[in-house]
Amino acid sequence: MTLAATLLALALLLTGREGGARMATWRSTGERIDRPVRLGSADPLAAASTFDVLSACLISGMAVSSAASAAALSAPPGLARVLTRAADMLALGADAATAWSDPGPPLDDHARALLRLARRSAESGTALAQGVAELAAESRSDAADAAKSTAERAAVLIAAPLGICYLPAFLCLGIVPVVVGLAGDVLQSGLW
């Protein structure tokens, strides 16, 4: 039992997982919700699912502030901060351009794209739901492309050690005996 606990502690130490981190968010009713924060393991599809939730809420007829607040509950931390800020400002009566303005430097690409889309929607009067649905599809496509490039990179990195190990073995066990056998036959019978 002690060996298993030691190995588990070693695995947790090596992977760098922190299990106790939590982030507090508030609903529009003022109720506090504690949710775990996953440090170190960013889900590439988390933004796409957040955009899907936001789009579904907007299509169903929810107000933008309520939809942003609902989507922020399951969003990655950077996107959740943007959605919560916009929801709070819209609920207080701020105009859409102010609510969807840039809150500060630590923003990821998904949050920036949502801010641009929401500001453009507020200026032109176009429906935000369709644009958010397109952002979700684009995020899924980007995640698939990233996974594919990672798999291709892994295939290349795996092929090099295999070539280094198997090529000499193939030469020593496959080619050299054939050449030695042919050379022995040629030398015994003579060249003419």
Rank of each mutant, 00 (worst) to 15 (best):
A46V: 14
D52C: 13
G40F: 06
L39T: 02
L10S: 11
L58T: 10
G61M: 11
T50H: 01
I33C: 06
R38T: 00
S66L: 14
S49Q: 05
T6F: 06
A48I: 07
G30N: 08
T50P: 05
A47H: 06
R22Y: 07
A42V: 10
L12M: 10
R17V: 11
S65F: 04
V37Y: 00
L13C: 15
M23C: 14
G20L: 01
R35Y: 03
V64A: 10
A48D: 06
A47S: 02
V64M: 13
G16K: 05
A4F: 05
A47N: 01
V53G: 07
A70P: 01
D43K: 10
S65C: 15
L3S: 04
T25S: 09
A63T: 15
L13A: 12
T6N: 02
A42R: 00
R38Q: 03
S28E: 11
W26L: 15
S60E: 11
G40P: 07
S66N: 15
A56E: 00
G16P: 12
G61F: 05
A24R: 01
S60N: 13
M62H: 01
L54V: 15
A11F: 04
S41Q: 03
A63W: 07
L54E: 07
G19K: 06
L10M: 11
W26R: 14
L8N: 12
L13W: 03
S55F: 05
S65Y: 11
E31A: 15
S55V: 10
V37C: 13
L39Q: 11
S60D: 13
G20C: 03
F51Y: 02
A4W: 01
I59R: 05
L7F: 03
L45M: 09
T50F: 00
M1E: 00
P36W: 12
L10H: 03
L13Y: 11
D34K: 13
G61A: 08
A11Y: 02
V64C: 03
A21Q: 10
S66R: 03
C57W: 09
G20W: 08
A63E: 04
M23D: 01
M23L: 15
S41V: 09
S49F: 04
A21R: 01
A42G: 02
R22P: 14
D52E: 05
I59L: 08
L13S: 02
R22I: 10
L39C: 09
T6G: 12
A47L: 09
L39W: 07
S41W: 06
T6E: 11
I59Q: 06
L8T: 14
L58M: 11
T2L: 07
M62N: 08
A63N: 02
R32G: 11
C57I: 12
L39Y: 10
T15A: 03
T25N: 10
